[in-house]
Design a binder for these strands. Structure first.
Lengths: 332, 332
DNA sequence: CACGCTGCCGTGAGCGATAACGGAATCACG
DNA sequence: CGTGATTCCGTTATCGCTCACGGCAGCGTG
C-alpha cells in the first residue's frame, strides 16, 4: 500500500483549492454543478476516501458511539447490540464495542478508551459501577444513555425494563399457582437490575403476607453454570422450595438442569420462572415461563435517545421504562 | 463540558515543551525521573487524556480494528465477537462492530467506513461478497483476516473450520446409522461455508455409492424460522427423507420444530444433525447431534493472526483450518 | 455608471498530537 | 582544561481536514 490519496491530491488534480473539494464532500456552500461533478469524478477515479480522523480532529465530531456491555455472548446483550448497531448505522454512526465480563476495572478501562477515542456518545448497558465512580467516568464523555441502570445527578437518559414489576409479577403468578416457598436466584450482587428484582420479589411476598426468608435468596453468576450450581446449593439447603424465580433465563435453564439432576420434577415439584424471554427460553424442556422484554428494541431506542442527547442536549434527559410481559409456558 | 485538556495545557502547567509531555506519554527518549513524575502528576491532576484522533493522524496508526459479521445476534457470531474483543483489548486495540445481516450492500458499506476510519486491520467473518468485489474492497484496508471464507490472490490470512470435512463426517455418521435418504438444508446460497458443506455432503454420499439427489438440497435462511420452513417444504415434498443435515444448529432446531409439527419423531423417523454446537444445541429436546467448533477461539486466534499481519506483514499470510468434532446426542 | 448583491471559490489559521532534528548542559578523560 | 559523548529537552514541520474569512467576477438597479 502506497500513500493514501488525500484531499490535496484531489484538489491538485481538479485544479481547485482544498476548500472547494471539502465543499463538495460536505454539500456545504455554493458550488457550480460542473465543478462539482468534475471533482466528484476525480474523487471516484482516484479512489479518494476522506480521513475520518482528520475530519474528526477538525470538527470535534467522530460519528462513533461506544457500546459497553457485560457480555456480548449473552443472548440478552447480543440482541441489544443487534438493535443498537442497526440504529447507529442508519444514522451514520459507527459502534465501538466493549465487553466488561462483569469486571468493574474493565468497565472503567473501556470508558477511558472511549473518552480517548472522543466518541460522540455512549450506550452503557447494565453498568456494575458504583454511583460516584460512574459519575466520575461519565463526566469525561459528551453524552450517555444508560440501559438497565439508573443514575441521578446528573440525570441521564435511561432505558430499562421495570425489573421490580417484573419480579413482582412473576412472584404473584407463582403465588396464584399455590406456590408458597419461593426462592430467588438473584444474579450478580453489583447488578442494579438484580436488586430491583429482589425488591419486587420481597414486595410481592409481603403483600401476600408471607415472611421473606433471606436463605431463599442467593446471588449467582448470570450464566447456565452459575444458575445450576446455585440451584443445587439452594435445593440441598432448602428441600422444601417449591418455586424458583431466576435473575434471567440462562440462570433459569441452569436451575432446570439442577432440578433434573436432583430428581426434582418441573413444574410438579419445583416451578421455575426466568426473565428476559431469550430465544432459548421457548426451546428447552420444559419450556420456560418467563418475563418478556424486547432487547432489540432497547438497543434501537437506546441509540435513538442517545442521538437526541447528542444533538439536542437542551431537551434534557429522557426516561423509558418498559413493562415486561408474563409468558406462561410449562415450567410453572 | 468545557474545552478538553490538551497536551499544550499540560506542557504549560508543567513548564516544559509539548515534546517532553509527549515523551512521557509514549515512554520514548530519555527523561529525568523527576520531570517525568512531575508531568505525570499534572496529567493526573488535570485529568488529561491524549486525543486518539490527533495521535492517529500523526502516527498513521489508530489501534482500532474492524469486526464485520452477518449477525451479532446469532450465537455463533456473538461467540466469535466475544473472543475477538477479548484478544483485541488485551493487545490494546478497540473494535468497531458492523452487522451485515447477509446483505452484500451493507458489507460493502461497512468496509468503506472502516477504510475511512483508518482502522489498522479487519476481521471479516463469513463474507458474502464475490471474490473480485471482495478483493477490490479489501485493497483499501491495510490488513485483514478472513473467518470462514477464503480468498486467493492476494492470499490472505484465514481461519476457518473445515466445512467440507464437517459435512462429510456428519453424513458418514448418518450413513453408519443406516440412514439412506439424507437431505441437506444448505443455508444462504452466497455462503462460502455452505458450498463447502454441500461439497462434503456430496462427496460422502458418492463415496458410499449413493446418488446425489438435488431435490434433497435446499437453501434456507440461517435461522430458526428459515430452518423450520425449509424443513416443512422438504418433508412435504420428500416424505421418504430419514435424515437431515443442517447448515447450522439454528436451522437444525428449526428442523426439529418442523418435525414435531408434522408428527415426525426424531430420531426414529428422521435424524437431525446440526453444525457449530452452540449452547442451544445441548438444551433442546431431543439434544442435537452436531459438529463442534470453537467459535470463541476463532475470534481470539483470528485477532492474533490479524495483529501478526499488521506488525509483521513480511511474514506472509497464515492459514488455520480447524477440524470440527462430532458430538453425538439424541437427535441422531 | 457607480453601487451593492449574489454566486463561486481561494487563503490562512487552527484541530491535537508526533517525527525529526537541533542544542545546551553535564560528565569522563587524556 | 579542552573535547567528545551523554543526557535531557526544545523547535519546527507535518498529519488531513474544516472554519472563518475574504475576494472577484457578473448581475441588476437607480
Amino acid at each position: 500500500m502506497t500513500r493514501r490519496v488525500t484531499i490535496a491530491d484531489v484538489a491538485r488534480e481538479a485544479g481547485v483549492s482544498l476548500q472547494t473539494v471539502s465543499r463538495v464532500l460536505n454539500n456545504k456552500g455554493e458550488i457550480r454543478p460542473e465543478t462539482r461533478s468534475h471533482i466528484l469524478a476525480i474523487i471516484e477515479r482516484l479512489g479518494y476516501r476522506p480521513n475520518a480522523l482528520a475530519r474528526g480532529l477538525a470538527t470535534h465530531k467522530t460519528f462513533a458511539l461506544g457500546l459497553v456491555m457485560p457480555d456480548i455472548a449473552n443472548p440478552f446483550f447480543s440482541a441489544i447490540a443487534r438493535g443498537a448497531e442497526e440504529a447507529a448505522r442508519q444514522a451514520g454512526y459507527s459502534l465501538l464495542l466493549f465487553n466488561t465480563i462483569e469486571d468493574p476495572a474493565r468497565e472503567v478501562e473501556a470508558l477511558g478508551t472511549l473518552a480517548a477515542q472522543r466518541v460522540d456518545g455512549l450506550l452503557l448497558c447494565s453498568s456494575r459501577l458504583p454511583d460516584d465512580e460512574l459519575r466520575r467516568r461519565l463526566s469525561e464523555l459528551p453524552a450517555t444513555v444508560l440501559v438497565n441502570r439508573e443514575l441521578t445527578e446528573p440525570a441521564l437518559s435511561v432505558i430499562r425494563v421495570d425489573n421490580e414489576a417484573e419480579a413482582r409479577c412473576a412472584v404473584e403468578f407463582l403465588l396464584s399457582r399455590a406456590r408458597r416457598t419461593i426462592a430467588f436466584l438473584a444474579g450478580p450482587v453489583a447488578s442494579h437490575g438484580g436488586s430491583l428484582r429482589a425488591l419486587g420479589y420481597r414486595r410481592a411476598l409481603e403483600a401476600a403476607g408471607i415472611a421473606c426468608d433471606p436463605t431463599l435468596v442467593r446471588p449467582c453468576i448470570p450464566h447456565l453454570d452459575g444458575g445450576r450450581s446455585a440451584a443445587h446449593a439452594l435445593l440441598s439447603a432448602r428441600p422444601d422450595v417449591d418455586a424458583v424465580l431466576c435473575y434471567n433465563d440462562l440462570v433459569a435453564v441452569g436451575a432446570l438442569q439442577a432440578c433434573s439432576e436432583m430428581g426434582r420434577r418441573v413444574p410438579e415439584d419445583v416451578a421455575v420462572v426466568g426473565c428476559d424471554d431469550i430465544m432459548l427460553a421457548a426451546l428447552v424442556t420444559p419450556p420456560l415461563t418467563t418475563m418478556r422484554s424486547d432487547q432489540r428494541r432497547m438497543g434501537d431506542e437506546g441509540i435513538g435517545m442517545l442521538l437526541r442527547a447528542i444533538n439536542q442536549p437542551e431537551a434534557g434527559p429522557e426516561k423509558i421504562i418498559l413493562q415486561p410481559e408474563l409468558v406462561v409456558r410449562a415450567s410453572a
